[in-house]
Amino acid sequence: MSDNWVVQNLENALNTWNQKLTEIWQLITQSPQQFKGGTIWNVIVNIHGAVQAIGLALLVLFFVVGIVKTCGSFAEVRKPEHALKLFIRFAIAKGVVTYGLELMLALFNIVQGLVSTIMTSGGLGAAQQTILPQEIVNAVENSDFWDQIPLWAVTLIGSLFIVILSFIMIMTVYGRFFKLYLYTAIAPVPLSTFAGEPTQHVGKSFIKSYAAVCLEGAIIVLGCIIFSLFAASPPAISPNAAAVTQVWSYVGELIFNMLVLVGAVKMADRIVREMMGL
C-alpha cells in the first residue's frame, strides 16, 4: 500500500468493496442450510413443520370450498370421472403440502446449478478484485502538497460513496436469504390452496414468487461479472492531465459502474418477476 494519504483513502475504500464483493460471491454459492452454519435453517424447518399441520387443515377447507363452487349439485360428485378428478387433485395437493420443503429445495438446487453454470461460463471462479491503477497512484504521488488538498476532498467523497454502495450490496444479498427463509417457513399455507380449483392461483403465484427469489442469485452473479469486466478496463486518461482531473475521471467512472451494479442487484427481484410475468 502506498504511503500517500490520498492514495490510502481510495485503497481502503476499494479494499472494503473487494471484501464485500468476495463475501457476496461466497454467499451466492451457499444454500439456506449452509448460511450462518445452518442455525437459522434449523429454526425455519421447525416452524415449517408446525405450520404444516395448519396447512393440512386448510387443505381440507379449500378442497370442500372448491367442491361447493365447482359442482352444481351433489349428483356431479357421484360421477366416477368427476370423483376421480377430485381425488387426484386432493392427493396431489396433500403431497405438495407434505413434501413442500423437499420440492422447494429441489427448485433452489436447480437454480443454483444455473448460477454455477453462469460462473463457469463467465470464466470467474471468484470475485475479481478492483485495483487502483498505477497511473493514478503515480499522478497523486507526483503532485505537490497544495494539489493534494483538492485530491483529498475528491477521494474522501469517492471513498464514502464506495463504502456505502458496498454495504448496500451485501445487505441486498442478506435480504435474499431473509426472503428464502420467509417463503420456506410459511410455505404449507399457500401450497394448501392447490386443493381447490378456485384457489389454486394462490399456490401458483407462491411458487412463481419463490422461483423469482431463487433466480435473484443469477441476476446478482451476472451483475458482478459485468462489473468486473468494466472495472478491468479503467477509463483512458491523458498522462498530461492534472492529477485532480485524472483522479476525478477514474473515481467518477468507477462509482458510476458501481451504481449500475447496485441498481441491478436492487432491481433483481423486479427483473426476474417481469421475466416470469408476475
Score class of each variant (00 low, 15 high):
232 A>G: 08
239 P>R: 09
187 A>H: 04
247 V>H: 04
175 G>C: 03
195 A>N: 07
199 T>F: 10
242 A>D: 14
224 C>T: 11
200 Q>M: 12
226 I>F: 15
225 I>W: 13
216 E>W: 11
200 Q>F: 09
213 V>H: 14
234 P>W: 07
184 T>Y: 07
233 S>H: 15
180 L>W: 14
221 V>W: 12
240 N>F: 13
235 P>A: 07
182 L>F: 14
214 C>R: 11
200 Q>V: 03
192 S>T: 01
201 H>Q: 05
185 A>Y: 12
208 K>H: 04
232 A>D: 04
189 V>R: 08
210 Y>F: 15
224 C>H: 15
198 P>R: 09
239 P>I: 00
219 I>P: 06
182 L>Q: 13
171 M>F: 10
172 T>V: 09
249 S>W: 09
239 P>A: 07
187 A>C: 04
213 V>K: 13
203 G>Y: 03
182 L>A: 14
195 A>Y: 08
227 F>D: 03
186 I>Q: 05
216 E>G: 15
217 G>K: 08
179 K>Y: 10
211 A>D: 04
208 K>Y: 05
222 L>F: 14
198 P>S: 03
229 L>Q: 15
170 I>Q: 12
213 V>F: 12
209 S>E: 08
192 S>C: 04
175 G>D: 02
232 A>F: 05
202 V>Q: 03
242 A>Y: 11
215 L>S: 12
202 V>D: 01
238 S>Q: 11
245 T>E: 09
232 A>V: 01
246 Q>N: 03
223 G>D: 03
187 A>S: 13
246 Q>V: 00
193 T>V: 05
220 I>W: 13
241 A>I: 00
171 M>D: 12
183 Y>P: 00
248 W>M: 06
196 G>W: 01
245 T>C: 07
217 G>C: 06
241 A>E: 07
241 A>R: 10
206 F>D: 02
175 G>L: 05
234 P>R: 09
204 K>I: 01
220 I>N: 06
204 K>M: 03
172 T>S: 14
238 S>D: 13
172 T>N: 14
222 L>I: 14
194 F>C: 03
248 W>V: 01
190 P>C: 07
220 I>C: 08
204 K>V: 09
239 P>M: 03
221 V>D: 02
241 A>M: 10
181 Y>C: 02
240 N>R: 15
191 L>D: 02
191 L>N: 05
232 A>M: 08
227 F>E: 10
215 L>W: 09
229 L>W: 15
198 P>K: 11
248 W>G: 03
197 E>L: 13
224 C>K: 15
200 Q>E: 13
246 Q>D: 00
195 A>L: 08
210 Y>I: 04
238 S>N: 15
209 S>I: 01
213 V>D: 12
226 I>W: 13
227 F>N: 10
187 A>V: 00
218 A>V: 11
234 P>D: 02
248 W>A: 10
218 A>N: 06
242 A>C: 02
185 A>F: 07
229 L>M: 15
237 I>G: 04
211 A>W: 08
249 S>G: 08
234 P>F: 04
220 I>V: 15
184 T>S: 05
204 K>H: 07
